[in-house]
């Protein structure tokens, strides 16, 4: 009897230890989420020196960002740049992961290679983008190298062409994230029961067959997880294109992402449109998060 009441009195500490997290979460995340949604229903911006609103306008803000084409355009931009970076990233990661974990290859210097490929992930994205901007500028070292080799007669304007800017953004994202993905996929590959590989080898399967018939299917859950988390990260794409194009998304706003657009409205204090955009992003990332959540939760149960 006495012992039991003691157990109960210990367990109240569970609540006590949860207080800091809960309080900070409520204040700095839940309240802002509620006010963000609230803001999306109001007209609230500055036109010159006069402050318009806040006036309740219902769903008008949502209508505006969809009808004037901003939201669809920037959403497509974001997705194009994400895909251009993600496809090479996942292929490269699968290849490297398969090599690193292949026992018949017995690659040396694995630690060195892993250290090198993970390195770009820790670099300040804004500094990395600034670096690419200076390297690929008209009078920058890449142009001078290409002219020395004789690829171009005169400097190529990387920053004035839609697809070169997008390619630069995608390249940076790919470089920054493929090391991380490789390490995650490797963990998945090492988690596969080795007896499956042995059985396949005894049956005379080649390593290509083993990769397609055993590794890849068993890796599917982790691949889905990597893809969705990367998609959530891709929707947040900001630092690289923002610094590379100085916030303009040029040429012709073709590299303007959703968060750059949000950032623009936050700076100009157009809270109505910024709110509608945030809610839109919240819904998409919320759905994607739910899928990830299902994944992590089922992993837990296992």
């Amino acid at each position: 009897m006495n012992k039991k009441s003691k157990v109960v009195s210990y367990n109240k500490w569970g609540y006590i230890f949860l207080i800091p997290f809960t309080v900070i979460f409520l204040i700095f995340q839940l309240v802002p989420l509620a006010t963000t949604i609230y803001n999306s229903f109001f007209e609230n911006y500055r036109s010159g020196l006069t402050q318009i609103g806040p006036n309740f306008v219902g769903l008008q803000n949502y209508g505006t960002i969809i009808a004037n084409g901003d939201l669809p355009t920037y959403f497509i931009n974001t997705m194009i740049m994400w895909l251009m970076g993600f496809i090479p990233q996942i292929l490269l990661s699968l290849l490297l992961g398969a090599w690193f974990t292949d026992p018949s290859l017995r690659l040396k210097c694995q630690t060195f290679f892993k250290t090198v490929i993970y390195l770009p992930n820790l670099i300040m994205a804004s500094a990395f983008a600034m670096l690419f901007f200076t390297l690929f500028s008209d009078s920058g070292p890449i142009n001078s190298m290409l002219m020395q080799i004789g690829v171009f007669k005169e400097a190529y304007q990387f920053m004035s062409h839609v697809w070169t800017v997008r390619t630069l953004v995608a390249t940076m994202n790919c470089l920054m994230w493929f090391g991380n993905t490789t390490i995650l996929l490797m963990a998945g590959m090492l988690g596969i029961d080795p007896s499956l590989f042995e059985a396949a080898q005894v049956d005379g399967a080649t390593s290509t067959q083993i990769f397609y018939k055993i590794t890849l299917p068993l890796l599917k859950p982790i691949l889905i997880f990597v893809m969705i988390t990367s998609l959530i990260g891709g929707l947040q794409m900001f630092d690289v294109p923002q610094i590379l194009t100085n916030g303009t998304g040029d040429p012709m706003r073709s590299s303007m992402t959703l968060i750059m657009y949000l950032n623009k409205h936050l700076f100009s204090k157009n809270y109505g449109l910024a709110g509608a955009l945030s809610v839109f992003l919240f819904i998409i990332t919320g759905i994607l998060s739910l899928i990830v959540f299902k994944f992590t939760n089922s992993e837990k149960v296992k």
């Binding site: 995340q29 309240v31 802002p32 989420l33 509620a34 006010t35 963000t36 609230y38 803001n39 988390t229 959530i232 929707l235 947040q236 900001f238 968060i259 949000l262 936050l266 809270y271 910024a274 709110g275 945030s278 809610v279 992003l281 919240f282 990332t285 919320g286 994607l288 998060s289 990830v292 959540f293």
Partner: peptide, 10 residues
């Protein structure tokens, strides 16, 4: 997984 950007306005 909810990004901080979506609540930054509030």
């Amino acid at each position: 997984m909810i990004p901080t950007q979506v609540t930054v306005l509030g």
